[in-house]
Design a protein around this nucleic acid. Structure first.
Lengths: 342, 342
DNA sequence: GTGAAAGCGCTAACAC
DNA sequence: GTGTTAGCGCTTTCAC
């Protein structure tokens, strides 16, 4: 049987209000009373009932993080770790929600149908576009991550400059002399979203160098998982011309592509250079290690939690959405420049 | 302003109770009333207030999953994904808690101090031992994962047979002719826990083959992260005798060790064979791919959620702890047997 | 089949 | 400085 304020009050011979004051560190309590109450608190092992407090306060202190999935995408688990860390610093706990490539599940996140006891949501959508945002009720604070929904929409938004980052990645490949640069990770049915932006950066870099976009070098995939990277690489290797470099839209695809290249006896980077995106830990430890775009993950997480909390606390009333763009940098490793010459 | 049952009741011209009946699918409501209420529900966009329902019910439908961290250990993020999936099938949501190698944080998990609005906890401890379990209040259902707290303790417990699994892994190395088999991941200060059990299996396999335990082949590490695997491997390579095989206590260590071996020009598996533990996705995609012990992760997750729910629902009153041991199998890949002969 | 009322545990408002 | 009271939104008796 849980111990209530009432129980403690009875034991200490005071009112519930006084116990509440002590529990919440209210200043104006006589030392004598405070001591007596504290003793009763300890003896009975009182713990606040957060459901009751939440009901009263209209808040739970829980925020949701809605991501596609944790199992096959290291980026999202690293992101989750970062978000949890920054949330904790602000006294929030995080409830993670997997949307699992389901449009319906993403809509549920937006409407709050799935989690009605969270104060707000940090949401990395995969399926939804700007039109769907109309269904977001004004009541639930939402911060968007990633590029699925373009900046300028009705919601707060944190991202990096994906177009510029992709352009830099491909420019690096051009600079080391590659000309048949393939891309892996295209989602041709999408007009918006991260895939589209990274493709745009890729296309801009090629065009800027006076190179054509070649259909044979464009690798469509489903979800950005390792096995899809491998399958896509296999398809590219069978085509003519063979690429001499590959820009993968995330590191999972790159890891899969790398596996396939090495399995086929293709040398990396001598025959084919490889660039990924996200800079997950795994990229530092593959052989060859992976050149990749490193987003400021902690900056993204911190900004997202901060924006969300400013909405929850009411510091920023609904409307006037903010867009935060965090830094990124290209981390050059062995998959493009090879081992350091001894 | 959130819509309450009261609001809906007023709009539909019925009592709060009737609306509640409709919301909860109570059978004995006349079709006519039900339709009118439903219409009001839809029109006003009613959503239940879960804080209120939780306060009333004494339950929140949230369970916590307390793990060391998500960012550097793929195993725990894959585990988290699996737990979330099985929890959802049972109508529960999961709040993830990182204990970050902190003894105090683990104690807080146990006492429920950190999360007092969860109905129960699935807990994978790293720092705590059996003695600490005394501090677990009977009120909060807890299911333990892993071997930190030996079976037979006061709490429900789900794991695999780590000793047997480690023995099989090392026996495989013996069978392919290795004799100087090193181990990476020892925590020499610990008397219990996963490291101890995997070491025990390692030792049993060697002893069973009539081989001595050699101090030079034992690699102590801190946390089981990639960089520690690399550092530990570097140390082992500098010693005499050089190992001809390495059993890493998890896949992160193995990935780090592999990186270091390849960097040093050591051929895997020809010069040094490598075995990991956990079978994270990354192990399938490294080159060479990693021989590793695959625990029945879904089985573990399902059992943990099931045990926890049976405690929460009261199906199993406090006491009479269950221990569930799930299967494992050794997945043989290139890091021990090389590429398949064409 | 439907309604009235009590109360889950807490905190804010107000009295003393 | 401390106590009393009302009420957050819901579900659960118990009447009708």
């Amino acid at each position: 049987m849980p111990v209530t304020l009432r129980d403690v009050a009875d034991h200490a011979g005071v009112s519930v209000k006084t116990v509440s004051n002590v529990v919440n560190g209210f200043r104006h309590v006589s030392p004598d009373t405070r001591a007596r109450v504290q003793e009763a608190l300890d003896r009975l092992g009182y713990q606040v009932n957060l459901s009751a407090r939440s009901l009263r306060a209209g808040r739970t202190g829980i925020i949701a993080l809605a991501v596609p999935e944790l199992r096959q995408s290291s980026y999202f688990s690293e992101l989750a770790g970062a978000v949890m860390q920054h949330a904790e610093e602000r006294g929030l706990v995080v409830l993670i929600e997997q949307t699992l490539q389901s449009r319906q599940r993403e809509l549920d996140v937006l409407s709050g149908a799935r989690n009605r006891l969270v104060d707000g949501v940090i949401f990395s959508p995969l399926e939804l576009g700007p039109d769907d945002l109309a269904t977001a009720p004004a009541g639930l604070p939402i911060v968007l991550l990633g590029e699925r929904v373009a900046a300028g929409g009705p919601l707060d938004h944190v991202s990096i400059d994906n177009v510029a980052a992709a352009r830099e990645a491909v420019t690096h490949l051009l600079r080391i002399g590659r000309r048949r640069i393939a891309a892996i990770g295209l989602h041709p049915d999408e007009r918006i979203g991260t895939a589209e932006q990274r493709f745009r950066g890729y296309a801009e870099a090629l065009t800027g160098a006076g190179l054509p976009l070649r259909r044979e070098l464009l690798g469509d995939t489903g979800p950005w998982h390792r096995e899809n990277g491998a399958a896509c690489m296999r398809a590219l290797l069978a085509r003519d011309p063979r690429p001499d470099a590959v820009f993968c839209f995330n590191d999972m695809l790159a890891v899969g592509a790398l596996r396939e290249l090495l399995r086929s006896g293709v040398r990396v980077p001598e025959d084919v250079a490889l660039v990924g995106f996200d800079d997950v830990e795994e990229a530092r430890f593959s052989t060859p290690s992976l050149t990749t775009v490193a987003p400021d993950l902690d900056g993204v997480a911190r900004a997202a939690v901060g924006l969300l909390q400013s909405r929850i606390s009411g510091d920023r009333p609904p409307g006037a959405p903010h867009t935060v763009t965090r830094q990124h940098r290209l981390v050059v490793r062995e998959s493009t420049v090879g081992l350091p010459r001894p």
